[in-house]
Design a protein around this nucleic acid. Structure first.
Length: 559
RNA sequence: UGGCCUAUGGUGUAAUUGGUAACACAGCUGAUUUUGGUUCAGUCGUUCAAGGUUCGAGUCCUUGUAGGCCAACCA
């Protein structure tokens, strides 16, 4: 896509400004730095598109770096899932890195800081350290261990590393300023003791570096020029810079951290912690449940990489709080699938139609266009016979002129086939219509070129031949939560706002042409919506996920 | 009682850096249509407030107001 606009977001302005003031373009380098403690969600997709998008725009490398400094929460499963998701979106990282690759370097630098009297071992319990930290409005107080000798600090730090102490017995702290108005500068912890195996370094280490000490230095080691993170890290920038200044070689690039607002999506939660709760409490069926706003959930639901990337591009990047309506996401998936998804006919709420003047033992094939959006049209054959299913909503015994569908005495076009007329409604004991008897006009066959076939009738219905239809499972989804911001409801837990009807499993009937479709394949069920084949499908029972419904202006009128 | 950040239609994001406030979604009209889809045309609606600087302010200054973030050995 050509650069259709010269309008830039504030991140691009920053880069352009740096370039203008002499920063060499070839030194541009970015990174996407997930912590492998959960699956990526739509918010991460924005960040991925930002960083990898910049990489493409400036032809700069982008690393995938796992921020794996806390073995208590991180797992290989998440590493694998994250790589899968980024690759699925269509991005290629320059190098796959891990913060844990830098544990030794980080340790060596920490020793240097101790020697320079800029770091010390604190031997107090966490409560005492928290106590001395002060509050945003009250300055903190010095730790009694703040002025230990360099020798003692070195000795203790070595012993920490050697596993001589229990978890939590000591920490290494940077010596900065206990009275800073920025709480993060009040002697932040650099290392804690954690006797826990790490998914990569196993038991090599029992001291693990904290985020602040690790992240900037990792950026520096990788020579990342611009390090973008979310707004809640804005206060960390001062610390980020302080740590970098302790080790920086002036001949090298000093990474620049800048912050943007995380993207919030309506009617869901966009937080790994909360998504983890949904998974752990069994509210959904795993991280890739199609109701989840995770990348893997969206993929399973039927979203395409392009739809997600276009969405990310449209919502842009800025610093103010936001709540993006899911309808924008839905717009983008419809836009993409409209072009790509072959059309088929499927009936989800069947009503039997008998064409009384159609011969009993006959069947025929009608030609159906696969996708009217195709440049070169292609077609398939769809079986037609005397007994069909249409949707229950497509028939009414009586209706006003605005109802374009089938009513007694009225005519309607069966898509790709004949014009039929409803003659009689058959009802059960309770008065429910269970069958409609119709007659058809044999000369009205679609594409036959007869004058009858060219008659205009207002309504066109989709249908399936009962004899030939394939019975399938269809999973319809609705938003997971009933309110736009479930996690911002005064004093209430977000789980109180779960939508009890977020999943609806029904039986459907589809035309036989889908029989050899593969898992993940997308379709438009004409007049209904977009669907894809779920991984739970078996040769005996196909399972379709409803990705999103078609726009439905009739639904509004009918109300 | 502190510090940092942010305020532009219903939503999201722009505005050539002080020069006609625009794009997309949503909404509403209408046209086309063998999908009440798509497409096309049109329409509604915007600079947090009050002062100030200026020929001219969304943009600069002042003061407010509102919202978000900051006191894990989490990231």
């Amino acid at each position: 896509m050509a650069e259709e606009t010269k309008s830039l977001n504030f991140i691009e302005h920053i880069i352009e400004d740096d370039l203008k003031t002499g920063f060499p373009k070839e030194n541009l380098r970015f990174r996407f730095p997930p912590e492998p403690n959960g699956y990526l969600h739509i918010g991460h997709a924005s960040s991925i598109c930002l960083n990898f998008g910049l990489g493409e725009k400036y032809n700069a490398p982008v690393n995938l770096r796992f921020d794996d400094t806390n073995p208590a929460k991180e797992e290989q499963e998440y590493v694998d899932a994250i790589k899968r998701d980024v690759a699925w979106l269509g991005y290629e990282w320059d190098e796959e890195r891990y913060a844990s690759d830098y544990f030794q370097q980080l340790y060596d630098w920490a020793v240097e800081l101790i020697k320079q009297r800029k770091a010390y071992v604190d031997s107090q319990p966490s409560e005492a350290i928290a106590e001395q930290k002060g509050t945003p409005t009250k300055p903190g107080t010095d730790s009694p261990y703040r002025n230990r000798s360099v020798e003692e600090n070195l000795e203790l730090f070595q012993q920490m590393k050697d596993g001589k102490f229990d978890s939590g017995a000591h920490v290494l702290r940077a010596k900065i300023d206990m009275a800073s108005s920025n709480m993060l500068m009040r002697d932040p912890i650099m290392y804690r003791i954690l006797h826990k195996a790490h998914h990569r370094t196993n038991t090599d280490w029992c001291i693990y570096p904290m985020y602040d000490w690790t992240h900037g230095e990792s950026d520096y080691i990788e020579q990342v020029s611009h390090s973008f993170c979310t707004l809640e890290f804005a206060m960390h920038r001062e610390l980020y810079n302080w740590f970098l200044e302790q080790v920086i070689d002036s001949k090298k690039v000093q990474p620049k951290q800048r912050e943007f607002a995380r993207r919030n999506l309506s009617h869901t939660v966009v937080s790994k912690r909360k998504l983890l709760r949904l998974v752990e409490e069994g509210v959904v069926n795993g991280w890739d449940d199609p109701r989840m706003p995770t990348i893997s959930g969206l993929r399973r639901r039927g979203y395409t990489p392009d739809s997600i990337k276009n969405f990310a591009h449209t919502i842009g990047i800025a610093k103010r709080d936001n709540l993006i309506d899911v309808s924008l996401l839905e717009f983008h998936v419809r836009e993409d699938l409209n072009k790509k998804a072959p059309r088929i006919m499927g009936v989800l709420n069947p009503l039997k139609v008998v064409i009384t003047n159609y011969p009993e033992d006959t069947e025929e094939y009608v030609e159906a266009e696969n996708n009217p959006e195709e440049e070169v049209p292609t077609f398939r054959e769809v079986p037609f016979s005397r007994e069909l299913y249409i949707e229950q909503e497509d028939f009414r015994e009586e209706a006003n002129r605005k109802f374009f569908r089938l009513k007694l005495g009225g005519e309607v076009r069966l898509k790709n086939a004949y014009i039929i007329k409803a003659e009689k409604a058959i009802k059960d004991d309770e008065g429910n219509v269970i069958e409609v008897h119709c007659t058809y006009d044999p000369l009205s066959k679609s594409g036959s070129g007869t004058p009858e076939s060219q008659r205009k009738v207002k309504g066109t219905l989709h249908w399936v031949s009962i004899k030939h239809a394939k019975e399938v499972e269809v999973r319809e989804y609705d938003r997971l939560f009933t309110v736009p911001e479930p996690d911002r409801q005064e004093g209430k837990d977000f789980l109180e706002f779960l939508n009890p009807d977020s999943l609806n499993v029904i039986k459907g009937y589809v035309e036989p042409s889908v029989a050899d479709a593969k898992i993940g394949d997308h379709f438009q069920f004409q007049r209904i919506g977009y669907f894809n084949i779920d991984k739970d499908s078996t040769p005996e029972k196909m399972v379709f996920n409803k990705t999103v419904g078609l726009r439905d202006s009739w639904a509004k009128i009918d109300k």
